[in-house]
C-alpha cells in the first residue's frame, strides 16, 4: 500500500515501496524507517543503510539519493515535520514541569535547540511501538488528523529520548574533562556505528572503521568501549545476529546462505553465537513461526 499524506499543518507522511532510485532534498526535518528489506541513503560521501532495526534522521535541506538493494520488497515510511510543528513541540516540551526539573537529564534542549544529529539510531522502545501503531492506522485509512498529530508528537518525544540516550548519556561515560570533547568524540563514535550498521555484511577492518570515524584505531577501541560498554566487533556481531534473525523469520533462504548474507564466515560459529544471544538455534527459531 502506497500513500502520501500531507496534513493541514504541513506534516507529511509517505509510506510505500520505494523505487530503485530516488533523488531529493529534504524540505523539512524528517525521520525515515524501513519495515522490510533495506534502503541505502547517500548523503555527500556517506552511505547509510537502514533496516527494520534502525532509523535515519535527515535535517532540513539535506540533499540525498536513496537506492533499494534488497532481495525482499522494501516497505518504507518517512515522516517530515513542519518547522512550526517542530518549534511548537520544543516549546511545549521545554515548558513541562518535569523537563524543567530535569534539565541536566535533557541538556540537548538548550544547547542543541536547532541542531539534530543526522545519523542512524536504533529503532527501539516507545518509538517502535508508536510508529507501528501509527502505520497500522494509516494503512487502514485513518483520516483523523488530531490523532495522527498525537502520534507525531509522541514520535518526537521518543526521538528526543533516544537522542538523549545515544548521545548525551553515552558521552557522560567518556573519560574526558571537557563536555564539548565528550560530545565531539561521541559524534565520531556514532560515525563508526553508522558504518557498522551500513556495512555489517562486509569484511570491515579496524583501520577503515577508524578512518571513517576520524579517530586512531587505539582511540576508537578505547572510547567505543567506554561509551557503549562493548567493542566495535561485539557491536557488529550484534547487528549481524539481529539481521540474520530477521531473514530467518521473513525469508526462505537456507541458513547457510543467511550466514553469508549477514557477513559471518562460518555457519558453526554463527549457530553458537545465535544460541548464546537468543537461547535457541536458528532452525528452531525459524520453525517457531
Amino acid at each position: 500500500m502506497e500513500y502520501l499524506r500531507t496534513l493541514r499543518n504541513n506534516n507529511v507522511i509517505y509510506s510505500g515501496t520505494r523505487n530503485n532510485f530516488n533523488q531529493q532534498t529534504t524540505s523539512d526535518f524528517s525521520i525515515r524507517f524501513v519495515f522490510s528489506g533495506n534502503e541505502r541513503y547517500n548523503i555527500g560521501k556517506r552511505q547509510l543503510s537502514i533496516h527494520n532495526d534502525s532509523f535515519l534522521i535527515l535535517n532540513k535541506g539535506t540533499h540525498y539519493t536513496s537506492t533499494v538493494e534488497s532481495a525482499i520488497p522494501v516497505q518504507s515510511l518517512g515522516i517530515s515535520f513542519d518547522d512550526k510543528f517542530l518549534q511548537d513541540f520544543k516549546n511545549s516540551w521545554q515548558l513541562k514541569d518535569d523537563t524543567l526539573l530535569n534539565l541536566n537529564t535533557y541538556p540537548f534542549i538548550n544547547r542543541y535547540e536547532h541542531e539534530f544529529d543526522e545519523t542512524i539510531y536504533p529503532f527501539k522502545g516507545d518509538l517502535f511501538f508508536n510508529v507501528n501503531h501509527l502505520k497500522h492506522h494509516l494503512d487502514r485509512g485513518l483520516q483523523d488528523e488530531l490523532l495522527i498529530n498525537e502520534y507525531l508528537h509522541h514520535c518526537l518525544i521518543n526521538y528526543f529520548q533516544i537522542f538523549n540516550e545515544e548521545i548525551f548519556q553515552k558521552a557522560q561515560r567518556l573519560n574526558f574533562l571537557s563536555k564539548s570533547t565528550k560530545i565531539e568524540i561521541l559524534r565520531r563514535l556514532n560515525l563508526a556505528k553508522e558504518y557498522l550498521y551500513s556495512n555489517y555484511n562486509t569484511n570491515i577492518s579496524l583501520d577503515e572503521l577508524a578512518e571513517y570515524a576520524c579517530l586512531s584505531v587505539t582511540h576508537l577501541l578505547r572510547t567505543f568501549r567506554q561509551a557503549f560498554h562493548q567493542t566495535p566487533h561485539q557491536f557488529l556481531v550484534q547487528i549481524r545476529l539481529q539481521r540474520a534473525k530477521d531473514l530467518l523469520r521473513n525469508t526462505d533462504y537456507p541458513v547457510n546462505e543467511i550466514v553469508n548474507m549477514v557477513g559471518f564466515d562460518c555457519p558453526s560459529s554463527f549457530i553458537r553465537l545465535f544460541k548464546d544471544r537468543f537461547q535457541t538455534t536458528p532452525m528452531k527459531y525459524r520453525l517457531s513461526f
Partner: peptide, 8 residues
Amino acid sequence: HDCLSDYH
C-alpha cells in the same frame, strides 16, 4: 492495546 488511540 493502543493507549494514544484509546485516549483520543
